[in-house]
Design a protein around this nucleic acid. Structure first.
Length: 565
RNA sequence: GCGCCUGUAGCUCAGUUGGAUAGAGCAACUGCCUUCUAAGCAGUGGGCCAGGAGUUCGAAUCUCUUCAGGCGCGCCA
């Protein structure tokens, strides 16, 4: 039963205001003791020319008897509704049970395709901690949209093209050793790449050589192409190792190279539509907003550029997937770039450019050292994950030395902790990386939530009581009620997260849910003490529902659960 | 110089699209393991919501302005 709708319908008759408008202003009171849903009477003040508290009182007396609610109170300008707890509880738990472990899953996106481009590392460069932001966010968004019924296509727009490959090939020809590279590909490739930069400072002619190699690559010269393919293969192999650890996957690895032959068409189209103008030798599209600088399509040497490639990719994706939404999970410093290319696409008459959205995120910063590829001073993502797993492993050894599957558990918790740390706040905020906060498993953290889950599962594992037909008339304590209310709020959190492209809404939600669960766990005995069997069944059903929803919510964040820890 | 973003407890951050006494976690301090996992629970202290002006019944939230910080501003991606 939808309480909001019910209240709105009744208020519609009483006040003459639109049902939708009434539903919109209804809110959850700041504290549980103020009720479950509140109707603020401010919007009626002007119409009725009365003070809001007065209106609340009048509405209350007009409302009459209503067994849908435990009580209705007029408090100041608010009309506060208290649900009938027993009805509410059995309704929510029934819905969770019938959802088949997919509570509040929706089909609102049926038949619509959502593209999510994320992670997108550069070939032959380290997969560092900064890449985790895009990877974690994109993976979570993909899961969220999928949960809402959309067809999701996960795109990894690899940085596998550009003049840097000319440099790399040049470096490899000079100092490369295939056997050494085979052992530790990315580090070795990085090493010779760094060396190239050092040498090129002294001998600028190296840069010319690199340009020459890239030209050969572009024209399909077999030898350079073979080398490029090799670099790409070994890099991808390493990336995939990290993706496996994270439980992240992609439907396409079509990167920049894939679009290298699809840019001419874009140039032709823009030319045909008279959008290109010459500026300092370059071909640019001038944009309407005076605050947005022109978008360069062709450099003065006639070569294409990043923007050209992204436009070609967007066009290709529209044709291939006919997307409903095309999401780019790329750092917020590139906001202007996306604004420009979306604007160019719109000027080209592609109305679907409105369905392209840039989901930006903050930088991963370090208190002291900077993140850079040139000097090779980076924090590898894999190292962070391993460190976190290691720390978890030590904790397990300390807490439960008899556990059977320590490694598996340590992996799920360790990685969950890191993912959580990246998804817990507004994505546009920068993250200052510190081992201390990353490996803090107390309070708001993945282990906190996973722990709550494991405790609940432990209870269910221990008993063989049939709780399939629970009676909630006795389980109406605040702890139980608040927990069930929180369970019920899952759907809103998911919708909110999708609407804003912000997984952190789910993160906060699930943390809150775990908090409610722990409170319940600590105050309401189930298998211990003197508990009558009806209460016991009802509480078991609550535990079952709570753990189920925790698992679903964590899944949407890309975090796994463990049965014990 | 222009544009975008940020400024809330000692630290890291929420604040449901203008509403009820501004909330969490960490850190500090105090209690709770012979009872379902203490990676937990209960509690205490801690705030001029950067400063100022305005809009109105009502502002952390909207407008203007000052200050402080971050990012971005054509041939890199």
């Amino acid at each position: 039963m939808n309480y909001k709708e019910y209240i709105a319908k009744k208020l519609e008759k009483m006040t003459g205001l639109q049902k939708e408008e009434l539903e919109n202003v209804m809110e959850t009171p700041p504290e549980p003791k103020m009720g479950d849903i509140a109707f603020p009477c401010f919007i009626l003040a002007k119409k009725l020319k009365k003070a809001p508290p007065m209106i609340a009182k009048e509405l209350l007396s007009e409302w009459g008897e209503d067994n849908k609610f435990q009580s209705i109170q007029a408090v100041g300008p608010y009309l506060n509704f208290f649900f009938n707890r027993t009805d509410f509880e059995s309704d929510v738990l029934k819905r969770v049970k019938e959802s088949n472990e997919s509570f509040d899953r929706s089909d609102m996106g049926k038949g619509k395709t959502v593209l999510v481009e994320y992670s997108s590392p550069n070939i032959a460069k380290p997969f560092h901690i900064g890449h985790l932001f895009s990877t974690a966010l994109g993976n979570s968004l993909a899961r969220i949209y999928s949960y809402l019924g959309y067809d999701v296509v996960r795109l990894n727009h690899l940085g596998d093209w550009g003049t840097q490959f000319g440099k790399l090939i040049s470096a490899y020809k000079r100092w490369g050793n295939r056997e050494v590279i085979e052992k530790d590909p990315i580090n070795e490739l990085l090493k010779i790449y760094v060396k190239f930069h050092e040498e090129a400072e002294k001998h600028p002619e190296l840069d010319d050589e690199a340009r020459e190699y890239f030209k050969r690559l572009e024209t399909g010269d077999p030898e350079t192409t073979e080398l490029w393919q090799y670099f790409r293969d070994v890099s991808l192999k390493e990336f995939k190792r990290v993706y496996d650890m994270l439980g992240v996957g992609f439907d396409s690895y079509a990167g920049e190279s894939f679009y290298s032959d699809k840019m001419q068409e874009v140039v032709d189209i823009l030319k045909e539509k008279n959008l290109l103008t010459e500026s300092d030798g370059a071909q640019v599209v001038t944009l309407d907003d005076p605050n947005v600088p022109p978008c360069i399509i062709l450099k003065s040497d006639g070569a294409t550029i990043y923007a050209t490639r992204d436009i070609a990719a967007a066009l290709y994706r529209k044709r291939t997937y006919d997307f409903y939404k095309n999401i780019y999970v790329v750092g917020t410093p590139q906001a202007l770039h996306f604004k420009q290319i979306f604007e160019v696409m719109k000027k080209a008459g592609w109305s679907w450019s409105d369905n392209c959205v840039h989901v930006g995120f903050g930088l991963v910063k370090f208190p002291d050292k900077k993140l850079s590829t040139r000097n090779g001073d980076v924090v590898f993502l894999e190292d962070v994950l391993k460190e976190s797993i290691q720390k978890t492993r030590e904790k397990i050894e300390q807490n439960s030395p008899d556990m059977e599957n320590k490694d598996e558990v340590a992996k799920k918790i360790g990685i969950g902790a890191v993912l959580y740390a990246f998804l817990k706040n507004n994505r546009e905020k920068d993250i200052v990386f510190s081992w201390d906060s990353m490996l803090d498993f107390d309070g708001e953290s993945a282990p906190y939530v996973q722990y709550s889950y494991a405790r609940g599962r432990s209870i269910l594992r221990r008993c063989d009581i049939d709780y399939s037909n629970p009676d909630f008339s006795k389980t109406t304590s605040d702890e139980e009620y608040e927990l069930i209310k929180q369970i019920n709020a899952f759907g809103d959190a998911v919708l909110n997260a999708a609407d804003k492209n912000e997984p952190f809404y789910i993160n906060r939600y699930v943390t809150n849910l775990a908090k409610c669960f722990n409170k319940f766990y600590n105050t309401r005995p189930i298998l211990k003490g003197d508990v009558d069997s009806e209460t016991q069944k009802a509480r078991l059903a609550i535990v079952d529902a709570a753990t189920q929803v925790i698992k679903s919510a964590l899944y949407l964040l890309g975090i796994e659960t463990v049965e014990s820890m």
